[in-house]
Design a protein around this nucleic acid. Structure first.
Lengths: 148, 148
DNA sequence: TTAAGTGCAAAGGCTTTGCAGCATA
DNA sequence: TATGCTGCAAAGCCTTTGCACTTAA
């Protein structure tokens, strides 16, 4: 167990700079998603000399290397997240903006079915569901009682 | 010119201008997706005085009215399409860029399952699958034979 | 040491907006 | 006729890029 001997470089073939290490760390600590701007802000908090250009360049590099993944939600801007698997299932609440990552077994069945039916080799699969979470649904009903 | 008695105004409460009529028609004639630029080009072909601003403003209006829907695919830019149903299933080939709209029965099951399990009222559902279509898959295999 | 990364600032796309004139209802 | 749409051009975002300096390996 090479304790900290030399933190293995997760971006082999590319120098591991302080900026990249910081950004990678921030991305890994992120629950859910961040956008470039948000990442830049958080990074600035820890290294105020970091530039937006670096954030963008680094995100692009990480994307190429498959360390992060870019997603675009309906009206919300594009986010990044550490790629754990090439499959994602997202639930987005239009009321509070909350984004939840879920796991539903039917998803795999669906993907397999498409694979077979269309002869498609699927390398990435995403489900995007938009609607209202139970809390927001309740709120809406209550306000309907008052206005209606 | 108004040979059709009075084509029912699909954008009630908003004047139906020539530009809007044209854009609506183009959108309806579109198989699949268009982006703002592409729509502008096609519109220009039929009314060269139309402006990009009008295209953007009109698309935004149509979006609000629910006549069109905005989608964003991975690397490809954002597209619009007439909204037939709030559910979409897309297959995107990374080889040739082809975008196919599909129908798979497992999809509905998945959506229902999420609805029940998370108590979420789902208003929009999208499946995005990326990979390689059979043709591109073949090509890749053949080139592998030569290079590898 | 040297190829590669970084910050800065400017440039590039796409989209929105202010304004004066014009068209729809 | 009056509200509201349109074209034009400018301004606003977000992202990329050129250049000289700095840094990881």
């Amino acid at each position: 167990m090479s304790r900290n001997r030399k933190q293995e470089n997760p971006i082999k073939g590319h120098p591991l700079t302080n900026q990249r290490r910081l950004l990678l760390e921030l991305l890994r600590d992120t629950e859910g998603h961040v956008d470039a701007k948000g990442l830049y802000r958080r990074a600035s908090a820890r290294d105020e000399s970091i530039s937006q250009a670096t954030v963008y360049r680094t995100l692009n590099l990480f994307k190429e290397l498959g360390l992060v993944d870019e997603m675009r939600f309906g009206r919300i801007r594009c986010y990044y997240e550490v790629k754990q698997s090439p499959e994602h299932q997202h639930l987005v609440c239009k009321g509070c903006g909350k984004v939840m990552e879920i796991q539903n077994p039917h998803f795999q069945k669906l993907v397999n079915s498409v694979r077979q039916e269309h002869g498609f080799r699927v390398t990435k699969a995403e489900l995007y569901l938009e609607g209202y979470c139970p809390e927001c649904e309740d709120k809406e009903k209550k306000s309907d009682l008052h206005t209606g």
